[in-house]
Each structure stands twice: as C-alpha cells, then as structure tokens.
C-alpha cells in the first residue's frame, strides 16, 4: 500500500517536472500559430485554434457589415466593419490568418444585407501563415538563415582541422608539454568569448573580416578548438594502434588502412565535435551583435525582433524555426551532455 502511494507520488512529481518544461514550449508554439487578433485573447490558448469562428451582422447606421468575434465565451467583440468584400478578404488575411476569396465572403455574408439576422461564420485558419509572413516581413530572415548555416559550417571546418590536429598530436606523438597543452585547451574552453568581442571588432576590421561569417566563426572556434582537441584526443587514444599495424601486415596500403580502419573509428568523435560547434555557432546572438553590422545571423535577428511591438507572433514563429535544429543537434549529442554544459 505504502509502496503504491510512493510510486504514484513519484509519477506525479515526474509529470509535474515534465510539464514545467513542456507547457511553456507548447504555449510558445501556439502563439507562433496565432493570428494578430488571437494575440489579444486572454486566457491564451494552450492548443492552437484550427478554425476561426466569427459572426456577421448588418449595421443599419453605417451601411456596412460588422464582423464580430468572441474574445472569450461571454465577450463578443466587434472587429471590423465594411461592405467591400475585397477589403474584407484582405483584412481577414492580414489580421485573422484566414486566406479566402472575396467571392466566398460575399456568398456567405451578402444574404444578410439589410436584415437584422446574425450569421455565424466559420473559416479555416492558415495555420502556418506566420511562418510565411516571418520570411516576408523580416526581409533579412532568409539571408540570416543562410548566414547562420555559413557560420556553423566555418566553425566546424576550423574546429575540426585545427582542433583535430591538436588532438591527434596529443594522442599519437611523443611531444613535451602535453599536460600544459591539455590544460590550455580546458582554459580556452571556459573562456568567456563575449568579453573579447570588443577588441575583436577592431581586429576583425583590420583583418578584413568584420561583419563576415568567417570572422564570427573564428570567435566561435575559440572554445570549440579546445573542446575538439579533447574529444579527438580520446578518440585517437581509443583506436587500437595494433589494429592499424595488423592491417599493414595483411598487406593493406596505408590509404586502405586509413579508409577502412581509422576513418570509421574516428568519424563519431568528429561528428560529436561538429555538433558542439553547431550548437555554439547556431545559438549565439551576443557575439554576432557585436561583430556584425549588416549580416545578421538568425539568432540575432530573433533577438532584435523583440523591439517590434505587435509582432510577437512573428517573432515566436522565428523562435521556433531557430529552436528546431538546435533541439535536433542537442538530442544527437545527449550522451555527451555534461561536457557542453555552460
């Protein structure tokens, strides 16, 4: 009996913790699927609406149709008044995310002209309208996405080549000062890169790399090269040297050995290191803010979008676009999770 109670308490606790994590994200997702008008609702929907329910009524005095919406179950709110269906369709698209033809509206609403009938309307909401509008309205959004990908790509290249070489040296050669190098790699891993971004702005202008993704990648590589060195070192140590030698003995060429023995064993480590690089470069907005001017990254664009009032639903859509790849890569990395902490 006691055990059952304890067991169910455990599940309650687990459910509580999980919902503390997931509920905010669900709300964010729903907001990113909301229309401009739905932004005004309170309480906010937890699950996105798939349809929009409206009411139309003929307004004698103004000689126009009034469109109402229930902000809550009790509260009917007048939104719009017009008898021009073209304009009405434009209004529906812009503020209610209903993509429909003026003729459809005319069909539905025209019959109540000059009557006192109230007609209920129900239209399908274009669920992903904000995602389209995000790229239309923030006209730099597409470039920003490309920039983010470029920054990631350069960071990976830099970290793997430079860091991989260090890792290999540490694992496979007899050099002096291995411990110092290892320690240095750890120190740069923890080094707060944003605090060197200030002088870096001037240096990058001198190097001709200010406002370029390559310039950003150099900064992102500072912690990442150290990290890559650590990971690749342990990978190279783990590869049995004797296995490679055995391969030579059986007459394999050096290239073949590399291809069939070494590389397959090394790839996972390189992949993991790449993913760290991805996360650092993809998630950063701070360094990009200081070191770019015209070429935004996606994260920076999202950071800046906060000032644009009345646009939080577009910004939310952008945030979701930013989140998805970051989530994917973190999940791929979850076995190493405690090492990317911070």
């Amino acid at each position: 009996m006691n055990k059952i109670i304890r067991h169910s308490l455990l599940y309650v606790l687990v459910a509580l913790v999980v919902s503390i994590v997931l509920v905010p994200l669900m709300y964010l997702t729903t907001i990113s699927l909301s229309s401009n008008i739905e932004l005004g609702d309170f309480p906010k929907n937890f699950i996105p609406n798939l349809t929009v329910e409206l009411e139309a009524e003929w307004d004698e005095d103004r000689e126009a149709f009034t469109i109402y919406r229930y902000a809550t179950k009790e509260r009917r709110q007048a939104l719009y008044r017009s008898d021009n269906f073209e304009e009405m369709a434009r209004y529906f698209e812009r503020y209610l995310n209903i993509y429909t033809e003026p003729e459809v509206l005319e069909n539905d609403i025209e019959p109540i002209r000059e009557t006192d009938e109230v007609i209920e309307l129900r239209y399908r909401k274009n669920l992903f309208a904000n995602y389209q509008k995000f790229f239309e309205i923030f006209s730099g959004a597409r470039d920003a996405l490309i920039n983010s990908i470029l920054a990631v790509f350069y960071t990976i290249l830099l970290s793997l080549s430079i860091g991989g070489a260090v890792g290999y040296t540490l694992a496979r050669t007899k050099i002096k000062g291995k411990e110092t190098i290892g320690l240095a790699a750890l120190v740069v891993r923890m080094f707060p890169i944003i605090s060197i971004s200030v002088p870096m702005a001037i240096l990058l202008i001198r190097y001709g790399m200010f406002d370029t993704m390559l310039g950003l990648a150099f900064i992102y590589s500072i912690p990442n090269i150290g990290l890559t060195a650590w990971i690749t070192r342990s990978i190279f140590l783990g590869i049995d040297k004797e296995l490679e030698e055995a391969s030579y003995v059986f007459g394999a060429t050096k290239l073949r050995t590399l291809r069939s023995i070494t590389i397959p064993l090394v790839i996972p480590g390189f992949a993991a290191a790449s993913m760290y690089a991805f996360i650092i470069a993809w998630n950063d907005a701070a360094v990009a803010l200081l070191l770019t001017d015209r070429n935004e990254t996606l994260a920076l664009l999202i950071f800046r979008s906060i000032g644009a009032t009345g646009a939080i639903h577009y910004a939310s859509a952008g945030a979701i676009i930013l989140i998805i790849p970051a989530l994917i890569f973190t999940f791929l990395l979850k076995d190493y999770i405690n090492r990317i902490w911070g």
Binding site: G40, F42, T66, Q77, A78, Y95, T309, G310, I312
Partner: peptide, 28 residues
C-alpha cells in the same frame, strides 16, 4: 501590443502606432 490584448484602453500615441493598431480591428 498592450492595446491589442486589452491590457490598456486609452493612449495618447504617435499616429503611426495609432493607425496600425486601429487597422487591426477598426470596429474595436
């Protein structure tokens, strides 16, 4: 934003803000 979600009801505002708010729901 605040007018839109009914947090506030009254503002003496720059006309551009007023226009874009008004356009979201002219009957409101």
């Amino acid at each position: 934003g605040l007018l839109l979600d009914d947090s506030v009801y009254l503002a003496f505002e720059h006309m551009a803000v007023v226009a874009s708010t008004y356009a979201t729901a002219p009957a409101k």
